[in-house]
């Protein structure tokens, strides 16, 4: 177990180093001067330029430059943004909670709908209900996410006039940002009409969350369904049937558990999709999150921001993946067997 952890952490570190090298080389690959790209200060006098070049170690060899970059990154210094001239880390932390909030709700919706539907489809394999669930999932899986967003806006905002189209909150309300998580902030604030603000915030959440959840939910349904079908064909399920268990016991105790365990590592793929979808969803619904910020940075050719976001987002993804694998190892006894067998 300890060796396994060590190996995973080793993998995490090497991958992070690769990512940081890639991110570092971006500073040189982007058009323009590396000094400006790394620092984010576009108009410099000659002496300022020399000073910066010194502090960023850009006058030394690539290796030393990289080490200096790594050191700065660890201290959270990613330079300043071209467009706002504020430190990138502050900007990033300002927009991060909105994205996490949105993704969390979408993930919740995904799991709440995806896992039971996938389980149901897998158990009733080849029956009508399975065909319906599977066809709908396949169809939804093929709808481009930006079109889903547009359709939702077209139907629910323009035609029905039910739900708001963009943003997190109507401009009427002003909630002071404490944690950045809107629903928490509302609770912490001393607004008089909290329930109205809550309804408003929730109404703003519905469309983006639904848009974001469509693709991951279909993925979860697909993974869960094939995993359940696989498990249902295993001899131990047939054996359990002859042991006198009710179907409910059989499904909750044996099928669900055995089907869920092997797909835990695949949840990494889910997060990957979620991040991609978040970027597009945020642009469509003008949600003030990371995705919107990155796209904005590209429009503005804000290279330090792009570089930093690549480094941070990729590191987050890798950490999530490794954590998932370790968690999988902890909960799945079969993994321990394989690991012990190959040791």
């Amino acid at each position: 177990m300890f060796v396994y952890l060590l190996r995973r952490i080793n993998l995490l570190f090497t991958t992070l180093i690769v990512i940081s090298v890639m991110s570092f080389s971006l500073g040189h690959l982007f058009p323009g001067d590396p000094v400006i790209n790394f620092s984010g200060k576009p108009s410099l006098t000659y002496s300022e330029y020399q000073d910066l070049s010194q502090t960023l170690a850009l006058d030394k060899s690539y290796f030393e430059q990289y080490l200096a970059y790594l050191k700065r990154s660890f201290n959270g210094d990613f330079g300043v943004s071209f467009s706002s001239q504020k430190p990138i880390l502050d900007e990033f932390l300002r927009v991060l909670p909105a994205s996490i909030e949105l993704s969390l709700y979408a993930l919740l919706v995904t799991l709440v709908f995806g896992l039971p539907l996938g389980l149901l489809a897998g158990i009733k394999n080849n029956r009508l209900i399975d065909r319906i669930i599977f066809s709908v999932a396949t169809i939804l899986n093929s709808i481009p996410i930006f079109w889903v967003g547009l359709l939702f806006i077209l139907i629910f905002t323009l035609n029905m006039n039910w739900l708001p189209m963009s943003g997190r909150l109507t401009l009427l309300y002003e909630v002071p940002s404490i944690t950045g998580f809107l629903l928490v902030d509302i609770a912490l604030s001393d607004l008089a009409n909290k329930s109205y603000v809550y309804t408003d915030a929730l109404r703003h959440l519905i469309l983006p969350t639904a848009t974001l959840a469509v693709l991951p939910a279909t993925l979860v349904i697909g993974m869960m369904r094939s995993s359940v079908i696989h498990v249902m064909g295993m001899p131990y399920i047939k054996a359990a049937q002859t042991k006198g268990l009710t179907s409910w016991q059989l499904i909750t105790r044996h099928v669900f558990r055995n089907a869920l365990l092997p797909i835990i590592p695949q949840f990494g793929l889910l997060f990957n999709t979620l991040v991609t979808s978040t970027m597009i969803t945020e642009v469509i619904f003008s949600w003030p999150g990371i995705g919107n910020w990155i796209i904005e940075a590209i429009y503005q050719r804000d290279f330090p921001a792009i570089q930093a976001s690549l480094l941070i987002v990729a590191s987050m993804m890798i950490s999530i993946n490794v954590l998932l694998e370790i968690a999988h190892m902890m909960v799945n006894p079969l993994m321990r067997k394989e690991f012990n067998a190959t040791k």
């Binding site: 295993m234 001899p235 131990y236 047939k238 054996a239 359990a240 002859t242 042991k243 006198g244 268990l245 016991q249 105790r253 044996h254 558990r257 055995n258 365990l261 799945n332 006894p333 079969l334």
Partner: peptide, 27 residues
């Protein structure tokens, strides 16, 4: 009530993710 069955490849007829004790308990 009256019949019980055992299979070939018994190791595959037991749920791989549940301990023997729990599996006995549930029956």
């Amino acid at each position: 009530r009256d019949m019980a069955m055992i299979f070939q490849e018994p190791s595959r007829s037991l749920d791989p993710t549940v301990t023997i004790g729990e599996q006995i308990n549930e029956v």
